[in-house]
Design a protein around this nucleic acid. Structure first.
Lengths: 189, 189
DNA sequence: GCGTGGTGTAGACAGTGTCTACGCGGTGTG
DNA sequence: CACACCGCGTAGACACTGTCTACACCACGC
C-alpha cells in the first residue's frame, strides 16, 4: 500500500510497482491500477497520455532500484575491483530473480519507442558504473567494449537462466558458475 | 500469403508468421490472424486451445528457421571451429535483427508456462550445436558451461544491441566488435 | 436413409485502452 | 460579491481483445 499523502501521479506509479511485484506482468492494466488506486479508469490520463507512458514510469522505478543496489559498488575505496564486479553481477542476477515482472518490463522494446529519453538514459547510468569497474579491473583493455560485452553476458544469463534454458548448462538453479565464467573470461588476457 | 492447399492449422501458423514479420508483435491477435486466414474468430479454437498455444506454435517456426540457419555449421568438415562460432554468432544476431518480432516472441516467458515441452526443447537443439562447436574450439574447457555463458553473451548482445543500449559501447550500429570480443574472451586462456 | 462427429460460424460476455463530454470545487478577477 | 476559469477526476461510449457456448453444415459409416 502506498502512503496516502501524495499526488495521484506518484500513487499510480507506486500501486503499479506493487501490483507488478505481487501479481505479475499481465495484471498491470491501466484500469486495474486505477482501481487499486481508488480512482476511475479515466483518471490516469491526466498524468500519463497513454498506458505505455504509465508503464514506462513504473519501469523507471525499477532502474532506480537497480541503481540503488549497484551504485555503491562504484565507490573508490580499496576493494578489489574484480570482486566488485562479481558482486555487481550477483546483484544484477538477484534483482532479475526477485523482480521478474519488473525486470521483464524494464527491457520491453515497445516501451521505448515513445519514451526514448527517459528509460534509455536510466539504463546508461547503470552501464556507467560497470564501465568504471571494468576500467579499474582491466585497465589495459578498451573499457566500454568489454563492459558492453560483459553487460550483455550478464543480461543474457539473467534472461535465459531464469527461463530454464541454461539449466542444461549448469544442471542447477545456481547461476553463479556462469557468472564467474563470464566475468573471468572478459577480464582475462 | 500462405499456399491455399493445407489444413487450417498450418495456415493459421503461416499467417501468424507472416503477420508477425510484416506488422509486428502487437498485430498477432487471435482474431486478426483468423481474419487474415479467412475464417471466423472461433475457428482457431479447434486446433489451439488458447491464444498462447497458437503463439507458441508460431514461435516454434522461429526456432525451426533459426536451426535451419545455424544447423549446417555443426557439420564436421575441416573448417576452423572458432571461425564457425563467429559465423554462428553473426547468424544469431542477423536473425534477431531481421526477425525482431519473432525473436521477441521466441523468448517471451509467458509462452512457456503452458508449453514447457515444445519450445524449450527447440531451444536446446540450437544450444546443442553451440556446445559441439565449443568442444572443438576449446577442448580443454568445460564445454557446456562455456557454451552457456557464450550463448548468454550472444543473446544479451542481440537483446540490448537492437535496443540501442549498447550503442554507447560501440558508437555504431555494428555489433560485430562486441561479438568478436565475447567469443574471443570465452575461448581464450 | 439416417445418425454422428469433425469443422467452422456467430453471438454473448467480461475485460481492455482510448476518447469525449460532463461535473465539481477552488482560485482569482471584474 | 458574482462570475469565469481551470485543475482534477467521473462516467459513458467505442472498437477491440480472448474465451465460451450453442448452432449449422457436410461427409462418412452403419
Amino acid at each position: 500500500m502506498p502512503e496516502p499523502e501524495s499526488g495521484l501521479r506518484d500513487r499510480l506509479v507506486a500501486v503499479g510497482v506493487d501490483l507488478l511485484a505481487r501479481e505479475g506482468t499481465q495484471k498491470i492494466s491501466l484500469r486495474e491500477i486505477a482501481r487499486r488506486a481508488g480512482v476511475s479508469h479515466g483518471a490516469p490520463r491526466r498524468y500519463f497520455p497513454t498506458h505505455q507512458a504509465l508503464l514506462a514510469a513504473i519501469a523507471r522505478e525499477g532502474y532506480s532500484e537497480l541503481g540503488r543496489r549497484i551504485g555503491p559498488l562504484a565507490a573508490d575505496d580499496g576493494a578489489d575491483p574484480r570482486e566488485r564486479l562479481h558482486e555487481l553481477g550477483r546483484q544484477y542476477l538477484d534483482f532479475a530473480r526477485t523482480h521478474r515482472g519488473m525486470f521483464e518490463l524494464m527491457f520491453r522494446h515497445d516501451l521505448l519507442r515513445g519514451n526514448q529519453i527517459g528509460l534509455r538514459q536510466d539504463s546508461l547510468e547503470v552501464f556507467g558504473i560497470l564501465v568504471q569497474l571494468v576500467e579499474r579491473a582491466a585497465p589495459q583493455r578498451p573499457a566500454t567494449v568489454v563492459a558492453g560485452a560483459l553487460w550483455a553476458g550478464l543480461h543474457g544469463i539473467a534472461q535465459l537462466g531464469h527461463w530454464g534454458s541454461l539449466q542444461v548448462a549448469t544442471h542447477t538453479e545456481d547461476l553463479d558458475p556462469l557468472l564467474r565464467t563470464a566475468i573471468d573470461a572478459h577480464l582475462e588476457n
